[in-house]
């Protein structure tokens, strides 16, 4: 039984097989992502009511919160696939991890900028050392560290394993960092005027938020597949099947 599952995993995770399958999978993620995203935008901008406390400015939540969720989610995906790559020596998992990092960093960056754009009307300053923003900033640094290490090591296998280990160390650290930043923030509460409390969530506000979060996950799935396919082509460039495939393109 296990042998058969293992054989299946190995077959599916062979770069060649993955390349073929993933090409067919991308539209299945990309199209729903686009449809859901547009629908969530419509719901968020036109249907969701004005917040009685924050006025229209709260609509930034439909970008900010999904982006922040994604940045954490992608880090988890990255660490888990790096772990799989490290333990079971599955090359595909390493490629997924490497392909995820830039997307996650972009989401973290987006969460930070939208957070500060939201902060200006709420706090009167673009940057406040709020616990969530600070954690997000540190997460962005963790992404930068991962990408820097990945690109600094010449040998691809070594780079994958080393940066994979760093991602796992980062995951162990994230709860500790998160907790200490929260704690640090409550000590210096004077600095923050109002927290990013989710405005008393009306159901019409919650729906676009969740839809947007799902759209973002689908978007990530599509992009990570595209990126992983690039990695496959590049890393397997000396293989016969890649050469044959490229000549047809």
């Amino acid at each position: 039984m296990f042998k058969r599952i293992w054989a299946w995993i190995q077959k599916f995770s062979s770069p060649k097989h993955f390349y073929r399958i993933s090409g067919k999978m991308i539209p299945w993620f990309a199209v729903p992502a686009a449809v859901l995203g547009v629908y969530a935008l419509y719901m968020g901008l036109f249907v969701a009511p004005t917040d009685y406390q924050q006025g229209e400015s709260y609509r930034i939540i439909f970008i900010h919160v999904p982006a922040a969720w994604m940045s954490m989610f992608i880090y988890m995906v990255m660490a888990v696939s790096a772990g799989i790559g490290l333990i079971w020596q599955i090359k595909l998992a390493d490629m997924i991890a490497a392909a995820s990092a830039p997307i996650g960093a972009w989401f973290a960056f987006l969460a930070l900028v939208t957070g500060s754009l939201w902060g200006k009307p709420m706090w009167g300053a673009y940057w406040v050392w709020d616990a969530r923003l600070t954690s997000e900033l540190i997460l962005l640094f963790l992404y930068f560290g991962y990408m820097a290490l990945q690109s600094a090591i010449e040998d691809q296998r070594t780079a994958d394993k080393a940066s994979g280990l760093l991602a796992i160390v980062g995951v162990v650290n994230i709860p500790i960092i998160h907790y200490s930043v929260e704690w640090w923030n409550t000590l210096h509460q004077g600095a923050t005027v109002a927290k990013f409390d989710k405005p008393s969530m009306h159901i019409d506000m919650l729906i676009p938020l969740l839809l947007m979060a799902i759209a973002a996950k689908l978007f990530y799935a599509a992009i990570v597949l595209i990126r992983a396919r690039n990695e496959v082509l590049y890393r397997e460039r000396n293989r016969q099947w890649v050469k044959e495939l490229v000549e047809k393109l």
Binding site: G55, I63, W106, W118, P121
Partner: peptide, 25 residues
């Protein structure tokens, strides 16, 4: 709608940046 209750700069630059990020990715 475009005025966003006075928060147009913040709301639209957030959505604009999100769009840029999506297109770039």
């Amino acid at each position: 709608f475009l005025h966003m209750g006075g928060y147009a700069t913040f709301v639209w630059s957030s959505y604009g940046l999100a769009l840029v990020m999506v297109v770039f990715n």
